[in-house]
């Protein structure tokens, strides 16, 4: 079982749509995929038309009183399951802090699912918290959607600093441009500058596209309802690059 986190300190950068579309493409390629919506806003859960509710809430989950496997919901797509969000996730940090090994709780919870899934995608809420530290510990790679603006550069630097201080160098970082608008000069400039400073930047990027916003109307991944749209194709390119970077063995 491989685990990837989709993360950025900043909100509104396209984390959820990245998680949803890559999970859909991964499942289509034959991998058994679990997407875990860790954001109490529950946007991923909404896109999959599932009720944002976890039986027993996050308290029972973290304290090991409910099996994670029992909380999983099958999606409308073969090979793709969802762990829905719950409003109680807003207090997840407090619960984690209460436990014995606060930064490895996610890892402990996911462990029993090892033989059921090939890939787990964690959709995380913004900000640096104990939950994000858990994600850094359990994931082998972080997909970091980055809007090509100066503000984004700042948050990226903050994240890198944090990972460095926490000695998390082995965590693979996969930043890529998200919500990019090539008509904007600033976006163009940043898309040239940033990869020079951070060579690990993926070459594929996701444009700012209304099709992605329409995911909320369709309540489906854009790769399902608009496979050949600009956005749909961009996510496919991104997925191909992620397969290559992480050397994922896809079956299709």
């Amino acid at each position: 079982m491989r685990v990837i986190g989709v993360y950025n300190i900043k909100g509104g950068v396209g984390k959820t749509s990245t998680a949803v579309n890559l999970a859909h493409l991964a499942a289509e390629s034959g991998l058994r995929v679990l997407i875990w919506d860790l954001d109490p806003q529950a946007a991923t859960t909404y896109y999959f038309r599932v009720q944002a509710k976890v039986r027993g809430g996050s308290k029972k989950m973290v304290r090991g009183k409910s099996e994670l496997g029992d909380l999983i919901k099958g999606s409308d797509y073969p090979n793709l399951d969802l762990l829905p969000a719950d409003f109680s996730y807003r207090k997840l940090d407090l619960l984690l802090d209460d436990s014995k090994h606060p930064t490895s709780q996610l890892s402990r919870l996911l462990d029993p699912l090892g033989c059921e899934f090939d890939l787990v995608i964690l959709d995380s809420p913004p900000s640096i918290s104990l939950l994000s530290e858990n994600i850094f510990h359990v994931a082998e790679a972080l997909l970091i959607p980055t809007i090509p603006t100066t503000l984004s550069l700042r948050t990226l630097e903050q994240l890198y600093d944090f990972l460095h201080k926490q000695q998390l160098q082995s965590l693979q970082r996969l930043p890529f441009f998200s919500m990019a608008d090539r008509r904007k000069t600033m976006h163009q400039e940043m898309m040239q500058q940033l990869p020079r400073k951070y060579p690990e930047f993926l070459t594929s990027w996701i444009p700012y596209a209304s099709d992605i916003e329409r995911m909320g109307i369709h309540r489906e991944p854009v790769t399902a309802f608009g496979r050949n749209t600009l956005a749909g194709r961009a996510y496919q390119r991104l997925w191909e690059e992620v397969i290559g970077r992480l050397r994922l063995r896809v079956k299709g």
Binding site: F48, R49, V50, D76, R219
Partner: peptide, 10 residues
């Protein structure tokens, strides 16, 4: 044949 709920979810 997909049986759907009120949210049109299978």
């Amino acid at each position: 044949i997909r049986i759907l709920d009120q949210e049109q979810k299978t």
